[in-house]
Amino acid sequence: MEAILYVSHGSRIAAARYEAARFVERCKAAIDIPIQELCFVELAEPDIVTGVDRCVAQGATRVIVIPLLLLSAGHAKHDIPAALERAKRRHPSLEIACGTPFGVHETMIDIIIDRISEQATPLDDQSMILLIGRGSSDPDTKRDIAAIARRLKEKTNVPHVDICFLAAIRPTLDEGLKQANASTYRHVFVVPYLLFTGVLMKTIERKLEALRVSPQQWHLCSYLGYHPRLITLIQQQLSSLSLAKKGA
């Protein structure tokens, strides 16, 4: 029997855990696989090994792991594989197939555009976008955010898209805000490239509050959240992993 194990980043913030759980409930309604469980990389329970245990306890013989992560960095490259290896030792006969983070995908660009379009002010030739990534010491993170920014600029025809990060990489959030504040653009659309609410969103809100007296009009967009479009990406991954099994 097949199961899906969704792996969220995890947070100490109850609202963030609740958002992940609600999203998985929507996935369950859209995906016809009998066993579907949620677990977390860190900061919340159940952990990944426990998530696998729960799938097996319900009769799973094959577990498809879906990382609910935006980009491929340390969690996707190291933490999740290590946890799955531990789970495999506990359940030697279990087949485990692991998907990938959402990554640089056209659907992710569309989600950003959806969040920007929620603002009362539309993008125009006096607008710029500041895309804020979480940040990671993994060099792929900066490369991927830069690729998303380039595609966003192409798709919106906005004059300028800049990037900054909340941790580990430069430019920092402060540097990104300072650069935008010194620009000649009238409207600055600030887009947190984050999947869930929490401390990082509060940090962005606090920094922007100090800029309300600047010449620019600042528009803080919602974080990406567990957007309905993500279910389509998950369905595509499931289809690909199922085809891989058939071709094995």
Rank of each mutant, 00 (worst) to 15 (best):
L5F: 15
L5D: 11
S8F: 15
H9C: 01
G10M: 04
A16I: 10
R17V: 03
A20E: 06
A20C: 09
A21V: 04
C27W: 12
A30F: 01
A30I: 00
D32L: 02
I35R: 10
I35F: 10
F40I: 00
A44R: 03
A44L: 01
D53H: 10
R54A: 09
V63C: 08
V63P: 14
I64P: 11
I64H: 14
S72L: 07
S72C: 12
S72V: 06
K77R: 15
K77D: 04
H78R: 14
H78S: 08
A82P: 12
A87F: 02
P92W: 03
L94R: 15
C98Q: 15
C98K: 14
F102C: 11
E106G: 10
M108R: 06
D110A: 14
D114L: 03
I116H: 15
Q119Y: 10
P122V: 01
D124R: 06
D125N: 12
S127G: 08
M128I: 01
D138W: 09
D144G: 02
A146R: 10
A149R: 09
R150H: 12
R151A: 06
R151G: 01
R151E: 08
K153V: 00
K153L: 07
T156W: 15
T156N: 06
P159Q: 06
I163E: 15
L166W: 15
L166N: 10
A167L: 05
R170N: 06
E175S: 07
L177C: 08
N181K: 05
A182C: 04
T184Y: 14
H187N: 06
V190K: 08
V191I: 10
T197Y: 08
G198Q: 03
L200V: 04
E205L: 02
E205M: 06
V213S: 11
Q217M: 00
H219N: 01
L220Y: 04
C221Y: 13
Y223N: 02
Y226A: 00
H227K: 03
P228C: 01
L230M: 04
T232D: 10
L233F: 04
L238W: 09
A244V: 02
